[in-house]
């Protein structure tokens, strides 16, 4: 019944993303051009001849006026090209594609972990206000937003790798130098299982534990806090009292009546946390030498790899906006009161 309208709404929202993305792209582009000095000069160092420099600048369109550079960048982008990275010497889009799965796997598991803990914790805290579980929920939420994520990662590494020796150190996705031939899904854990390589699966899981926990713990805090607040409000609502007055079991009242109402703010905060995790993830990847986008962007920043920086910011912003798009559509689907 409402599904066609929902589809139309989704289409409209997707179209609306384009102008914002263009402006964001322009901003990023402008940012990389206002940096003093020509990037080639900044990167090339003194031992490269002037002719070679001019040639490099020409390839990167850096000898043209600003607006032309932007137009050319857009043209290349429409063909899936994002310029050649100064450090890897291949197209940035290819770099990003290679590194995306590592990041995606890490962030996905971290978010799953965060939600899997925060939701029950927040709900129990809302049900039993001022109980021990409520105290735990509060402690988690205030500690999670107070700890620097990179420090938490270091402390965990010290305890579980250096001191106890239980988990692998900061050496990336497998905890060893094994490289995986051709990815199927890009998720190392899933690919290993698909190929029946149980040993690799275990290694991948072990390597994931600490970075996932680090990122997940920080992401958990706001979700648990929001869940507690909205569930507490929902449980005190009139419609919950109605459900109880009809003798519906408490489990049904909590999960099907209260939670269904609380879901929208919880989803919203989760999306916001996801965006936050995209930033925190950079720091986590640096600590754990995780071969993903964060690590890539870090190296790009250190070596002033302009096309790479631009590509990274663009991709992350795009992902961020897609998440919000998904959220808006989910909200529209979940809440009959939203007009669209």
């Amino acid at each position: 019944m409402g599904s066609t309208r929902l589809l139309l709404y989704a289409a409209r929202r997707i179209l609306l993303i384009v102008p914002v993305l263009l402006v964001a792209l322009f901003l990023t582009f402008a940012l990389t051009r206002i940096v003093p000095g020509n990037p080639v000069d900044r990167v090339a160092g003194p031992y490269i001849s002037l002719e070679r420099r001019a040639e490099l600048k020409h390839i990167a369109y850096l000898d043209r006026p600003f607006y032309e550079q932007f137009a050319l960048y857009l043209r290349d982008l429409s063909q899936g090209k994002m310029g050649t990275s100064y450090t890897t010497a291949q197209d940035v889009s290819k770099d990003l594609r290679q590194r995306f799965p590592a990041t995606f796997e890490l962030v996905t598991y971290a978010m799953l972990f965060a939600v899997a803990v925060a939701l029950p914790l927040g709900i129990s805290a809302a049900i039993k206000k001022d109980s021990w579980i409520d105290s735990i929920a509060r402690a988690v939420s205030v500690l999670g937003v107070s700890m620097p994520i990179f420090w938490l990662g270091l402390m965990l590494l010290y305890v579980f790798f250096y001191f106890l020796g239980w988990l692998p150190g900061p050496v990336g996705r497998t905890g060893s130098a094994i490289r995986f031939a051709e990815p199927i899904t890009g998720f190392l854990t899933i690919d290993a299982l698909l190929k029946g390589d149980f040993d690799l699966f275990l290694k991948a899981v072990q390597a994931l534990i600490l970075p996932c926990f680090t990122l997940g713990f920080v992401a958990m805090a706001p979700i648990a806090r929001m869940t507690r607040a909205v569930m507490a409000e929902a449980l005190q609502s009139d419609y919950v009292r109605t459900a109880r007055s009809l003798g519906l079991p408490f489990r049904v009242v909590v999960l099907r009546h209260a939670l269904k109402n609380a879901l929208i703010p919880i989803l919203t905060i989760t999306a916001a946390v996801y965006g936050y995790a995209l930033g925190g993830e950079v720091l986590v990847e640096i600590i754990f030498a995780w071969p993903g986008l964060g690590q890539y962007s870090y190296n790009a920043l250190l070596s002033s790899d302009f096309p790479a920086i631009q590509g990274f910011v663009l991709l992350v912003t795009f992902v961020y906006m897609v998440i919000y798009l998904a959220l808006d559509i989910a909200t529209a689907a979940l809440d009959p009161r939203v007009k669209y």
């Binding site: 099907r256 809440d335 009959p336």
Partner: peptide, 25 residues
């Protein structure tokens, strides 16, 4: 919950629209 509410004694409320769950048909 199992024996009294709904089956023996049920209630209707002051503000009916708030008493119904807004996101369930």
């Amino acid at each position: 919950e199992q024996e009294i509410r709904g089956k023996e004694i049920s209630m209707i409320f002051q503000s009916p629209r708030e008493a119904l769950n807004p996101v369930i048909t």
